[in-house]
Amino acid sequence: MSKAEDVVNAMIDACNRKDIEAALACFHEDVVYHNIPMEPVTGREGVRKTLGPFLDMAQQVDWITHKSVSNGVDLVMNERNDRLLMPHGWCDLPVMGVFEVRDGKIAAWRDYFDSAAVQALLGGGS
């Protein structure tokens, strides 16, 4: 496993613990976080404002990485299911993530998913 994979896995582990501060520590201060097809956000505070509410509203977080590939230097791609236990039950979002790592921190994070699935998650899906 590469150091780039280590930092991505540490961020996912922090999200699974609902520890936003530990997750934010994995990001470069000028990170660009883009949930495709939404607008990208920049900086750790942008990540906090986007990711934090999901971690806060979930009773439990269980992001499962099925496959992860890395160029061994600065790029990690993973296939995940981001699972959140909401008041109405588990919501399961299939995701493809792309992470660029610089200086041991995540400098760019792009997640690709079906936006209809997010609407179901927010509105009381599966």
Rank of each mutant, 00 (worst) to 15 (best):
L121T: 11
A25P: 02
K49D: 11
G124S: 07
L121G: 00
I20H: 09
A108G: 01
A58C: 04
G123P: 00
R83A: 12
L24E: 11
M96V: 11
R17F: 04
N71T: 07
V61F: 06
R48V: 10
W90H: 08
N81A: 06
V76Y: 03
L24D: 03
D114C: 09
N35R: 12
V73C: 05
V98E: 15
Y33G: 11
P87D: 04
L84W: 13
M1Y: 08
Q119R: 09
H34F: 05
D13E: 14
N81R: 14
M96K: 07
Y112D: 01
F27M: 14
W63C: 01
K49G: 01
A58H: 06
E21K: 15
E21N: 14
L51C: 10
K3Y: 05
R83P: 02
Q59V: 05
E100P: 00
M11R: 01
G89A: 09
N9Y: 07
S115N: 08
G125R: 04
H88W: 11
V47G: 06
S126V: 11
H66Q: 07
D6E: 13
K67G: 00
A14Y: 10
K105W: 01
R48A: 08
K3W: 07
Q60M: 08
S115D: 06
E45L: 03
V32F: 02
N9E: 10
G43K: 08
G97C: 05
W90E: 10
R44D: 02
M1H: 14
D103G: 10
I20A: 11
I12S: 07
R17V: 05
I106M: 01
S126Q: 01
V95Y: 02
N35H: 06
P53H: 04
I36M: 03
A107F: 00
R48H: 14
E29I: 05
G124N: 02
W90K: 12
P37H: 10
A4Y: 07
N78M: 01
E100M: 02
S70Q: 07
V69W: 09
N78C: 15
D13Y: 02
C26T: 08
P87R: 06
D6R: 12
C15G: 01
W63D: 02
M1N: 08
M38D: 14
T42A: 15
L122S: 00
E100T: 13
N71C: 03
W90M: 06
G104M: 11
C26Y: 04
Q60C: 14
C26Q: 14
N35I: 08
M38L: 05
R17E: 15
A10M: 12
R102L: 05
V32K: 12
V95I: 15
K18S: 15
G124C: 04
W90C: 02
V118C: 09
G43F: 12
G52S: 08
F54M: 15
A4G: 12
G104K: 07
A23F: 07
V41W: 04
V41Q: 05
L51P: 04
D92T: 14
L85R: 15
K105F: 09
F113A: 02
G97Y: 06
A107D: 04
M38F: 13
E5L: 10
M96W: 08
Q59G: 13
G52Y: 12
N81W: 07
G52V: 11
R110K: 13
K3F: 09
E39Y: 01
D30Q: 13
F99T: 03
G123M: 05
E5T: 06
R17A: 14
H34G: 04
D62Q: 05
D114W: 04
L84K: 02
L122N: 01
